[in-house]
Design a protein around this nucleic acid. Structure first.
Lengths: 232, 232
DNA sequence: ATCGGTAGTTGAACACGTTCAAGAAGGGCG
DNA sequence: CGCCCTTCTTGAACGTGTTCAACTACCGAT
């Protein structure tokens, strides 16, 4: 949560442009206010004032208020990856690995449930750069898909050869579904989302195992063909 | 598309309050401008001006710009129901009935794809009254679920006794998934969405049929239990 | 040291959704 | 006819996200 350079761990990074400091200041201030007041209640003027810069300056670094959310995405993704590491180290079976990684994702998001819910709507807009399917989000998205690739690769599970290459993206899609449910989840502590994970993972596990059965091959093939058709 | 009283077909309806005429004028003007210019590009001032009323007057009838969308929902639902009728009359098998009704839904929405996509984001916000899961949307939602109930009831399909009561809502949920895909579908004429329907319906059909098999009973039960848990 | 150009910064101004105090219109009742 | 109360209507005003022309700070080249 505290600032922590992601890539180069050298103290000063002279490679970056002058305004990098200002950029981070604005970003951190915005994140803090979002958490404190919620997204809609945080005005660009308030962010600028708290950060001690002019309104226009925030727009120099972030094209819009929505673009500040993308920072939140990227940050969450990094935290998710870190929180998933112990699970990937510890678990070997596919089911527990998947469940652990999904729970880790919700763990990371939980402190932000209040305000995350209000802006996830922007992510749902297809034309928005914030959509998890958009080109602008391809970085975090691919990182997330890779994470589910690790869930699979490190596991002892035996998967249908045709399904295997598609599975990481499908698992990511399932994770998006979990998040969609989580956003709407008003149960205290979002316990229902936890139940969803614990209930759905065994089903997915069983489904993946069944995909290898000779009798179900046609169905597996049919599903995969459909998915390939629908992807562009 | 042209104005057409839905319920009472008597000429004058004196039962309604004085401003009903104004309400419809504003509503129709808004729908027209939404289609012509898109949602974001249509300002409340423009709606008011085109309708020949003051801005505040629009807010007397519709709590917000978003609330005008709900009118669009309701209208679309009615049109969907009407478009589905021939299918329900014609088809007897479950698969064709379901496919026909899903296609009918997309048929109705297709002319609005351009602007519908831009406002479906509002529907994704959990706190919004526009969410298909919200209390305010319960009317159209239940009407839609009923429609899928008819798909099932009128069909020759034999369904697992435990699954049957849950199935209409599950089919509606699948329909929401189709719409979510449709919103993001940028293929010309949204042909991919048509492929999704044609590809997914046989799978659903087969899945429903399989649910009766003794071997799969535990899985069916497991899925239904999970769903019951997650519903509130 | 001076110049020139890029990067960074400013805040007033704009258009929008929304609110609200004020008023107009209508109709029932004496 | 005059009164009152509800329903309806108005448009100026507010706060918001966003833009942009002007300005400043910095740095390499002359």
């Amino acid at each position: 949560m505290t600032e922590q350079p992601a890539q180069t761990t050298t103290a000063g990074d002279p490679a970056t442009a002058r305004g990098e400091q200002t950029r981070q200041l604005i970003r951190d201030t915005a994140m803090r206010l979002f958490r404190e007041r919620g997204y809609a209640q945080t005005t660009m003027r308030a962010i600028a004032q708290e950060a001690g810069v002019a309104v226009g300056n925030a727009y120099y670094y972030f094209g819009s208020k929505d673009h500040l959310i993308q920072e939140f995405y990227a940050q969450s993704q990094v935290e998710h990856r870190a929180a998933a590491q112990p699970v990937l180290d510890r678990e070997e079976a596919f089911g527990p690995r998947l469940a652990g990684v999904l729970h880790a994702g919700i763990d990371v998001l939980t402190p932000s449930h209040g305000f995350a819910a209000t802006f996830f709507k922007t992510a749902a807009e297809p034309t928005s750069p914030l959509s998890p399917f958009s080109a602008e989000s391809s970085g975090p998205r691919e990182a997330a898909i890779d994470l589910f690739g690790e869930v699979l690769a490190g596991s002892t599970a035996t998967v249908d050869a045709e399904l295997r290459p598609q599975l990481p993206e499908l698992l990511w899609l399932a994770y998006m579904g979990v998040i969609l449910y989580w956003v709407h989840d008003r149960s205290p502590g979002q316990t229902k989302t936890r139940q969803l994970i614990d209930g759905a993972v065994p089903l997915i596990d069983r489904l993946v195992a069944l995909s290898r059965l000779r009798v179900l091959r046609p169905v597996t093939r049919q599903v995969l063909d459909l998915i390939r058709t629908l992807r562009h």
